[in-house]
Write a protein that binds this DNA or RNA. Structure first.
Length: 226
DNA sequence: GCGACAG
DNA sequence: ATCTTGTCGC
């Protein structure tokens, strides 16, 4: 995987790209019903010393959570980590992994945010707009956003707030365990995004899709040659 | 001006 | 993200 021609090289250019693509986000669709079709988890692992990034995409059968297909891609680090610009660091290699899949991804579940973003255009929205696929973000941290503590039971949630604007939800996926932070990416409603997240979490805090993608890209990074 | 800050 | 062993607990 090569870094695409015209890929932003500076923060200023990256901000301009976000501004340009933000208008492509579709928010008036509900998205696929949970438990049907394919759900694909994507994640990335880095080796900055070797300037290597490995992305993984794992397709699950939404009904059984069985793994249907998986793919990886190796690339160069395309952008430094800057809060709010994470997508520019991950997307080229993630796209390559998605393109290497032998089947349609269905709903894409990202490790990070969608609308819960300083400019309402996080990784899940960016990836959704570029691929046209329905996408959601499930993050492990609240970033700069605030929220009340959801009730202790799995399934309870509270609004994730940027000031007074609701940009996502803090969703409890296991009784008494720290919530995850769900936001809409593209072509999915927040209610459906939360329903999918719950359908994907059986025994662990994080969705099976991201857990499998995480395991796969770490393994592939160790085996990657340069 | 000084932190905080998805992964 | 990544650097890193054992350890407490269900």
């Amino acid at each position: 995987m090569r870094i695409p021609a015209g890929w932003p090289a500076t923060e200023e250019q990256a901000l301009a790209v976000q501004d340009e693509l933000r208008g492509g986000v579709v928010l008036d669709e509900t998205g696929p019903p949970p438990g049907t079709g394919h759900v694909t988890g994507v994640d990335v692992a880095y080796d900055d010393a070797r300037d290597i990034v490995v992305a993984a995409a794992v397709v699950l059968d939404a009904a059984t959570l069985g793994t249907v297909a998986e793919a990886t891609a190796v690339g160069r680090v395309s952008f430094p980590y800057v809060p709010g610009l994470l997508a520019f660091r991950e997307i080229p290699t993630v796209l390559a992994a998605l393109e290497a899949l032998p089947c349609a991804p269905g709903l894409v579940v990202c490790d990070g945010y969608g609308l819960a973003h300083p400019r309402r255009f996080g990784l899940a929205s960016h990836l959704g707009v570029l691929t046209g696929l329905p996408a959601i973000g499930v993050a492990k941290n609240p970033f700069t956003f605030t929220h009340d503590d959801p009730g202790p039971a799995r399934g309870s949630s509270s609004p994730l707030l940027a000031g007074t604007e609701e940009v996502g939800r803090a969703l409890r996926t296991r009784d008494g365990v720290k919530p995850v932070y769900v936001s809409v990416g593209h072509r999915v409603s927040i209610d459906n995004a939360c329903a999918h997240t719950l359908a994907l979490t059986s025994g662990y805090r994080l969705p099976e899709s991201t857990r499998r993608a995480d395991a796969l890209c770490r393994r592939a990074l160790k085996e990657a040659q340069v």
